[in-house]
């Protein structure tokens, strides 16, 4: 019984979580266009993917949006975390609450509310609408990643800097940012992941002129099974995996600095 709860049960849950993903990855290398029977190893789906110029454009769009949104979100997230940690200002508690609410809000609610905003202000759906939406989506996650690290730092470090005559900006640029750099990098990586994978919000705020990867995946999945989809999903899965692991490593590193 003890062994069951300690080892067998968790293994089943991990199997449940990873088996479907593994199947997708394995079949992305299967040399058969429809059948599920293993017909030998091939990379042809990946080649087809890379020769599909439409696909490459879409991927490039996603990466550009991802980089920009992650950079904006991690910058704004960092100053949000710093403001919450260091200052008292109007609406501070509200801001705390708002970040929490933004994290738990279903994406569809965010998506349509932004769609309403864009249509009310005549922002065309495309690059800018996506960038602003993705940035907004990522800010609370970035802010919380940085905030949870900033609180683990010794507060007297900031007092010491102040005592030695550092202005707020110097404290920010010479003390906080260098000390929190790993956490900021982690926030960036996680934001990039979120942006790269976001389907629901993007679904509402994207326009025909600027297609992005997650929506392309959705269209492919919905319309029918081209085996390339396995290859594309595999690449995205591995991309996410690397980003998440890198983010965790960065956070671990920061823990050491904070000691």
């Amino acid at each position: 019984m003890k062994k069951f709860t300690k080892q067998i049960y968790p293994s089943f849950v991990y199997l449940f979580l990873y088996l479907p993903i593994l199947i997708v990855i394995i079949f992305s290398f299967n040399d058969a266009s429809r059948s599920l029977i293993w017909k030998g190893f091939t990379l042809k789906w990946y080649f087809e993917l890379f020769h599909d110029s439409g696909m490459l454009t879409v991927a490039a769009h996603s990466i550009i949006i991802g980089i920009l949104a992650a950079s904006l979100a991690s910058s704004i997230g960092t100053i949000t975390a710093v403001s919450l940690f260091r200052y008292r200002f109007f609406g501070k508690n509200l801001l705390h609450g708002l970040l929490f609410v933004m994290i738990v809000t279903p994406e569809i609610v965010i998506g349509i509310s932004l769609l309403l905003l864009y249509s009310a202000t005549n922002v065309p759906l495309g690059f800018w609408s996506l960038l602003l939406a993705h940035t907004t989506l990522c800010i609370p996650f970035a802010a919380i990643t940085v905030y949870s690290r900033i609180t683990s730092l010794d507060k007297s470090i900031f007092e010491a800097a102040r005592d030695l005559g550092a202005s707020d900006f110097v404290i920010f640029s010479k003390i906080i940012v260098p000390l929190l750099l790993p956490a900021i990098v982690a926030a960036w990586l996680l934001s990039f992941t979120l942006s790269l994978d976001d389907v629901i919000t993007s679904y509402f705020v994207s326009g025909p002129g600027f297609a992005i990867l997650p929506l392309k995946v959705y269209a492919m999945v919905r319309l029918g099974i081209k085996p390339e989809i396995n290859a594309l999903c595999t690449l995205l899965l591995i991309g996410t995996l690397l980003l998440v692991v890198a983010a965790q490593v960065a956070l671990k590193k920061n823990e050491k600095v904070g000691e």
Binding site: I21, L196, D197, V217
Partner: peptide, 9 residues
């Protein structure tokens, strides 16, 4: 953190 769309697929 992985896309839930891909996991749904």
């Amino acid at each position: 953190w992985t896309s839930s769309l891909i996991r749904t697929y």
